[in-house]
Design a binder for these strands. Structure first.
Lengths: 214, 214
DNA sequence: ACATGTGGTTATCGAATGATTACCAAACCG
DNA sequence: CGGTTTGGTAATCATTCGATAACCACATGT
């Protein structure tokens, strides 16, 4: 055999264990992505830097040292989420601003649910508007999205409202893990189908993997 | 004069200081209301039992002993919020189920914003769907609201979705403290006006008092 | 008057958490 | 090779927080 520290050579190298040393920038991105997932599940106050560290496969002090503070880490997660969202919308706008644009942006939005924690982290930030640092960043981000819809995408005020309202409803139902009840509760079933006429399966499949353990 | 412990008789009795002993039930309700405000601001994990205690004017251990655990306290806050919401809607339904019902229920919803923390606590619960206890209660509550809209109020699936979507958007903007930007940011101004065609002043006035300090 | 239940408080404890320090080893570099 | 930068970890620390214990006092019935 040879599994625990051979006499010579590298000790076997378990699958993912012996990370061959990453560049700090890559590691940083990896941690931010992992953090988005955890923050999405437990919110800012509810997540531990240690949870993030474990999710990213590094030690807790490493997270602290790399980001300075948990708040800073959250702000970077927030910034990344907004960047991703805005560029996804911008891409749709660039692909043409015909009457089909609202529907396309809507689809692009739902696609973002694939990125675990992206929209949920946003949502957690949104309800923390009273926090000095997070609230400020969250408001600015929300307004930037609104600006993009109104100005760049050419939505009317009412269209922008309807779009955002649906988005918030989707976020809420994802945060609620409503998909857990999809097969057992008729109301939940209808509610999900009505809010997500397209790409429902996306949310349902998502509900099966997710589990950050705590 | 006579201000610090008189020789005889009760020592002056500062305005609110010498609470003349409350019945446990009343105190409990008082704490739950105070807790709703704090939970609304900081969320479940972000709130300490001590903040709640101070907001309610009691000692921290008293909160712990009365509710057993912070989670239990939050669940009672959640239950109270849902009770209030459902009975407000039920009252509108009882007042007549004509075509004006959706608008009336909408107004009733916005009125609930007066009860500091009620809708925000709900919102915080909604995005914590992954939590075993809170998530279960939150899902059940959300579905009960949906049931009421669909069955009792006679909304179509689409009407129910639109109503809830707008509700979630309003909650989000309140959580974001978007009203802080109302006078300084044109987009925020329009966004608020569009989402709250009626009762905008309610949200604006609300934004001025609120401050739970931390 | 006195026992007793009830509405509270102060003091304190143990666990969890975010951050800091000190240290280590792989990689790069002349 | 020998040094230095860089990507990490283990150990530890100071706080904070939720909960418990011990105690106190007002009210109330008798």
């Amino acid at each position: 055999m040879s599994s625990v520290s051979d006499q010579q050579g590298k000790p076997d190298a378990q699958p993912g264990d012996p990370q061959p040393r990453m560049k700090s920038g890559d590691r940083r991105e990896l941690i931010v992505v992992a953090a988005a997932g955890v923050f999405g599940d437990f919110g800012y106050f509810g997540t531990t830097t240690d949870q993030v560290a474990k999710a990213a496969g590094v030690s807790q002090p490493y997270v602290s040292r790399m980001f300075g503070t948990k708040e800073q880490l959250f702000l970077e997660v927030l910034a990344r989420s907004l960047r991703t969202l805005l560029s996804a919308f911008t891409a749709e706008i660039a692909a043409g601003t015909g009457p089909g644009l609202p529907a396309r942006i809507g689809l692009a939005y739902v696609e973002l649910l694939r990125d675990r924690g992206l929209l949920l982290s946003l949502m957690h930030a949104f309800v923390l508007g009273g926090d000095p640092a997070i609230g400020t960043a969250a408001r600015a981000g929300f307004l930037e999205v609104y600006r993009l819809l109104r100005v760049d995408a050419g939505f009317s005020a009412g269209e922008a409202r309807d779009f955002l309202a649906n988005g918030m409803l989707i976020n809420t139902m994802v945060g609620l893990r409503m998909s857990d009840e999809f097969e057992t509760n008729d109301l939940a079933n209808e509610c999900l189908r009505t809010a997500l006429p397209e790409k429902l399966d996306l949310v349902l499949n998502l509900g099966k993997e997710q589990r950050s353990d705590r």
